[in-house]
Simulated scan of single mutants.
Amino acid sequence: MGTRARDQVVVITGASGGVGRAVARRYGVRGARVALLARGEAGLAAAAEEVRRAGGTALAVPVDVAEFDEVDAAAARVERELGPIDVWVNDAFTSVFAPFTEIEPKEFRRVTEVTYLGYVYGTKAALSRMLPRDHGTIVQVGSALAYRGIPLQSAYCGAKHAVQGFNEALRCELLHNRSHVRTTMVQLPAVNTPQFDWVLSRLRRHAQPVPPIYQPEVAAKAIVYAADHPGRREYWVGASTAATLIANAVAPGLLDRYLARTGFTSQQTSQPRDPHQPANLWEPADENVDYGAHGDFDDRAHTRSAQVWASQHHTALLSGAAVAAAGVMTAARLLRR
Rank of each mutant, 00 (worst) to 15 (best):
A74Y: 05
A42E: 15
V9W: 00
L127S: 11
A60M: 01
L127K: 10
V218S: 00
L188C: 04
A226Y: 14
V29K: 13
G31T: 08
G253A: 11
V114K: 04
R109L: 15
R261I: 10
V114Y: 05
R233T: 06
Y147L: 11
V250T: 08
V63F: 01
G295M: 07
N90G: 10
A301G: 08
R148W: 00
A47P: 09
S311C: 05
D7F: 05
A219W: 03
A243W: 09
Y121G: 08
V328D: 06
Y225E: 06
G253S: 13
H302C: 06
A207R: 07
R30M: 11
A325Y: 08
A35D: 10
G43L: 03
R171L: 04
G40R: 06
F264Q: 04
K160I: 15
F100N: 13
T269W: 02
F68D: 15
V78T: 14
W198A: 02
Q164D: 09
R109G: 14
H314T: 10
V114H: 04
Y214P: 00
Y225C: 02
F297G: 06
V120P: 03
A45C: 00
S16V: 15
Y225S: 08
T262F: 08
R182L: 02
P151T: 12
A279D: 11
L127G: 12
C172G: 00
A227H: 02
G238R: 01
L44K: 15
Q268F: 05
G118N: 07
W309S: 10
A155D: 09
T303E: 09
P278K: 13
R26S: 09
V210N: 13
Y291V: 09
A15P: 03
R148N: 03
V63G: 04
N177V: 01
